[in-house]
């Protein structure tokens, strides 16, 4: 068992023992290699199931919306930013939460990892920043940093931005030369090529809505895609409808998205839906100097007005 897992179990069982919270939300080991499952521990016994490794890429802030109980939550950098967003958007109040912060060195892109093997991965373990992966045919020792999820590679907030206690020491933040290289690549395309790029991106979308449902921002009781009276968008596989869904979902995340990558991790078809939200993150940052979820005293970007705001687009 790694040190982090041990600390998380200890801290959570203390919280429950001292009746500080009604439940602690964290991850338990999955039934297949490299899978984990969000779980709530209601008693000390259950905290023994908690684990932490580099497969915990799903965002746990998604599991606290509108909860009435007092909650302990394990939060890596991006989870903590979404907790901040939840607090500023009144989805949960700060005093209902006890945050166990986990400084993070990035999560694994398991599709990329699997592509290294001809047969299925049967075992995965970690030793510090090294990962040991076995398949039926071969065992490989790999560097975790070579297999990070793409959002983790450009992450500027590995440390939790808000917490009550920490499960490990803070880590060094990354120095990134060009944070938006991926966005710039699309920006440099001609208008037709951009359109085709997104057409191609969404070709395999099956509209299972895993992206929006894994997203902590998508907490509307009824999403516009599910509305039937009035119906805003067709429900089938028409490519205009599919693009409309992704475009509008992304736009609803403007100034709120923390680039946690849960959408991409959840997608069964391996679609990089971050290509939409990344543009909004870049614009929020470059035009308004805004990064989502850093400060619970600040109102969300699109909910504030300042005379200094750029208004060159209004005629």
């Amino acid at each position: 068992m790694n040190k982090l897992t041990q600390n998380i179990r200890e801290l959570s069982s203390n919280l429950l023992k001292n009746n500080k919270v009604d439940m602690v939300i964290g991850f338990k080991k999955g039934t297949i290699p490299m899978a984990v499952s969000p779980m709530a521990a209601h008693n000390i016994e259950q905290t023994k199931e908690f684990i932490w490794d580099s497969n915990c890429g799903i965002n746990l802030a998604n599991f606290i919306s509108d909860k009435k109980e007092k909650i302990g939550i394990i939060a890596k950098g991006c989870d903590s930013r979404n907790i901040v967003t939840h607090i500023t958007e009144n989805k949960i109040s700060r005093d209902k939460l006890h945050i166990i912060g986990v400084p993070c060195t990035g999560m694994i892109d398991k599709i990329k990892l699997q592509s290294n093997f001809n047969d299925d991965i049967t075992d995965y373990s970690e030793n510090g920043e090294d990962i040991i992966v076995k398949s039926g045919l071969i065992e490989k020792n790999l560097k975790k940093s070579d297999y990070l999820k793409s959002n983790c590679k450009t992450c500027m907030h590995r440390n939790p931005v808000i917490y009550d206690e920490l499960a490990a020491e803070l880590v060094q933040e990354q120095k990134i030369e060009d944070q938006f290289a991926d966005v710039k690549k699309i920006e440099s395309l001609s208008i037709e090529d951009k359109w085709n790029y997104f057409d191609n991106l969404l070709k395999d979308c099956i509209r299972c809505y895993a992206c929006k449902n894994a997203c902590p921002l998508c907490y509307c009781p009824s999403c516009f895609v599910n509305e039937s009276n009035p119906q805003w968008v067709g429900k089938g596989q028409d490519k205009t409808d599919i693009k409309t869904f992704h475009f509008l979902r992304a736009y609803h995340c403007a100034g709120r998205c923390t680039d946690c990558g849960a959408c991409v991790q959840a997608c069964p078809m391996n679609i990089n839906v971050r290509d939409f939200t990344r543009k909004l993150i870049k614009d929020s940052y470059e035009i308004y100097g805004w990064e989502a979820g850093l400060d619970i005293t600040k109102r969300p970007l699109l909910d504030t007005f300042s005379l200094k705001d750029d208004d060159s687009f209004i005629k």
Partner: peptide
């Protein structure tokens, strides 16, 4: 919004904002 539309391949000149 205009920027995101343009990013996706919709010409910017199709969307105008004005305060009247």
């Amino acid at each position: 919004m205009g920027n995101l539309l343009e990013h996706m391949g919709i010409e910017k000149q199709r969307l105008h904002f004005s305060w009247i």
